[in-house]
Amino acid sequence: MSTDGAPLSNPMVFRNLGLGLGLRAPHFSIATAGKANVSWFEVVTENFLGIAGGTGGPPLEKLRKVRENYQIVLHGVSLNIGSTDALNLEYLKNLKALDRQIEPAWVSDHFCWTGVNNHNLHDLLPLPYNRGTIDHLCERIQFCQDYLGRRMVFENVSSYLTYSHSEMTEWQFISEIAHRAGCGLLVDVNNIFVSSHNHKFDPLDFLRGLPRESVAQIHLAGHSIEGEILIDTHDQPVAPEVWGLYAHAVKLFGPLSTMVEWDANIPSYQELEAEIFKARHYWPEIKKSERAPTGYIGDINA
C-alpha cells in the first residue's frame, strides 16, 4: 500500500515527515491553497467521516485538496481500543475507506477507552496498567491492524487519575503493547509532563522507558493549571518545561515527525508555525533549513 512507512510486512520504520501542525478549521484555507510552510498536517479522523447516511461533506473535500500538497496523518479519538465493548466495525469500515482515499502517512489513535455499554463519553479515559489490559489491547490492536492492512500508531494520553488495579508504570504498559502488538508509538511529550505532575513521577523515566524503535511521532501542546491539577487543554503555547522534555526526547529518539496541537483559543496560522518551528532549535542538523526535510529517516534503529 502507498504509505510512507508502516505496512505490516515492513520492519518498524516510520518516515520522518519533519515538522507539522494539527490542522483545524480556521486554517484550512491556508492549507488548501498550499501556502503552509510545514511539510505535513495531522487531522482528527472523525471530522472527516461525516454522519450516518451522509458523506464527509465539505470537510472531506477540503482534506482531499490539502492532501494534494501535504502529507497527512489521520489521528482518531474514537477507536475505543481499550473498552470492554466489542470493537466498532462500522467505525473501522469508515476509517478504512478514509484511509484509502487520503493515503495518510499513518493512522493513529490513543491508548485509552472512550465509552462502554454503547455509551460514548467522547473523552480519552485512562486504563489500568496490568497484564489483563495488555492482553485485551494487544488482541484488539492486532485485529485493527489486520483489518486496515497497516501498522497503527498509538498515543499516551494525559490522565487525571490512576487505578488501584495497575501493576506497572504507564511506560512499561505501552512499551509491552508496542512490542507485542507491533504498533508504533506517538509520544505526546505534553501528556507525559501533565501526567507526571498529576501522578508524581519523573517524566524522564517515562521517556527513557520507551522502546525507541517503536516511536513514530511526537506531539507537543499547551496545558493549563486548575488548582493542583494540570489539564491538557491545547489552548496555549508549549510550556518551557515541555520544550525541555522535548529536547530529551530528540536526544533519545532522534528528530522524529513532530507537531503542535492547538484546539482552543486558536491563534493565527503564522503564530502556529512560529510555535512548531521552535522545534528546529532541538534539531541541530536541520536548524537552518527553510522547510523541515521530508524523506529523512530518523536514526530510530541506531
Binding site: 470492554t84 455499554n117 489500568p128 489483563g132 492482553d135 485485551h136
Partner: peptide, 16 residues
C-alpha cells in the same frame, strides 16, 4: 467479538 481476559475487572472499572 474478541476474547477478553480480565474482562470483569476492566468492565467493572469502566462501568463505574
Amino acid at each position: 467479538m474478541l476474547n477478553r481476559p480480565n474482562k470483569t475487572t476492566l468492565g467493572e472499572i469502566q462501568n463505574w
